[in-house]
Simulated assay, not measured.
Amino acid sequence: MPSFASNFANKHVLITGGSKGIGRSIVEAFLTEGANVSFCARTIRGDEFSLFKGAINGARAVGSAVDISSPEEIKSWVDKAAKEFGRIDSVIANASPLIGEATAEAWENSFRADILGLVTLIDASTPFLEERVKASENASLVVISSMAGFEARHPVAGSPYSTFKRAQATLAKDYARKLGALGIRINSIAPGSIENPNITLPDGTVQLSQYQIVKRDNYPFYKSLLDAVPLARTGVPEEVANTVIFLASGLASYINGANVVVDGGMSLFF
C-alpha cells in the first residue's frame, strides 16, 4: 500500500487569488509539499512569499498580475506558467472579486469573473492536464466555492456573490462529466466561516483582511456566523488548504464531481 503522501514534490500547481487569505495558505501548503506554484492576483508586489520559510525541495512561487474577468489574460497566464515550469499538474480556482453590491453592474462584473473566468481557466488548463494523464500521472482541479452559495448568508441580500458561488460548485460537477472522461478530476470546496488573518508585509506594514474588516465593522454579523458553528469557533485558512491538498492529490483518485463542505458543522442540514 502506498504511503499517505501527496506526492506533489517537483510538480507544478496554478492558483488564482494566491496573494492573501485562503489562496495564500493554499500557495504555502503546496510549497510545503515541494510543489512549484504559479499564482495570480489583481496586483502583485513580487515579495508576497519572501518571508515564508516552509518550502522544500527548492520549490518556488511565481506571481503574476491577472484580471480573472479577462479571458485573454487568463489564457496568457496559463501558457506562460506552463512554459515556465514545463508542466501543469493541478489547478486551484480560488480567486473571486467578492463583489457585494446589489446592482446590475455588479452582477455583470461578477459573472465575467466568477463564471466566465472560471470556464476560461478550466478550458485553458485542460490540454496541459491531459499531458499529465498521458504520462500516467495525477491531474486535477479544485474550485473554491463558499457556503454562502448554499445558505445565502452574505450580508448584502440581492448581491451576486451567493448565486455565483453556488453556480461555481454546480459548474464543477458538470465539468466532472467532461473532464472525467479525459482522466482529469475536478471537485469543489465550500468553506464556511474562515477567519483570514491580517498580513504583515515585508516592510512591516499590516494589510487588513476582508474578514477582519467585517469583524470590526459589522460584529453582529460576525457573531451570528460564529454562533451557528457547533465547533464554537471560526476556521482558519490552513484547514481549507489541507482539504485542497487532499482533493488535488492522488490520495483522492476516485473523488470527482464532489463538493466538500469545510464549515465546522454550520450546515448540518446541507
Rank of each mutant, 00 (worst) to 15 (best):
M1P: 11
P2V: 04
A9W: 04
A9I: 14
N10E: 13
N10R: 14
K11Y: 06
G17N: 00
G23H: 01
T32S: 15
T32G: 15
A35Q: 08
N36I: 00
V37N: 03
V37E: 01
V37G: 02
V37A: 04
S38D: 12
F39A: 06
E48D: 03
G54N: 10
I56W: 04
N57Q: 12
A59W: 00
G63R: 06
S64E: 07
D67N: 15
S70Y: 02
I74D: 07
K80E: 14
K80G: 11
E84Y: 04
F85N: 08
F85E: 05
G86R: 07
G86L: 09
I88N: 08
I88F: 11
V91P: 10
N94M: 02
I99E: 14
G100V: 06
E101D: 15
E101V: 02
T103K: 04
N109H: 07
R112W: 06
D114Q: 13
L118P: 00
L121T: 07
I122D: 07
I122G: 07
S125H: 04
T126F: 01
P127Y: 03
E131A: 14
R132E: 12
V133K: 06
V133Q: 07
A135D: 11
N138Y: 11
A139L: 05
L141R: 00
V142E: 10
S146Q: 05
M147V: 13
M147S: 10
F150H: 15
A152I: 05
H154E: 13
V156P: 03
P160Y: 04
P160S: 11
S162R: 00
F164M: 14
F164W: 01
A169D: 13
L171P: 05
L171K: 03
L171G: 08
D174T: 09
Y175A: 08
A181S: 13
L182R: 14
I184C: 13
I186W: 08
I186P: 05
P191W: 01
G192V: 07
I194H: 09
I194A: 14
P197I: 04
N198S: 15
I199V: 12
L201A: 12
G204T: 06
Q207K: 15
L208K: 14
L208E: 13
S209P: 03
S209A: 03
Y211S: 14
I213C: 05
V214A: 10
R216K: 15
F221N: 06
Y222W: 14
S224Q: 09
L225V: 13
V229M: 11
G235E: 05
E239C: 04
N242L: 06
V244R: 10
L247T: 01
S253W: 09
I255T: 11
V260S: 06
D263F: 02
D263E: 11
M266F: 03
M266K: 12
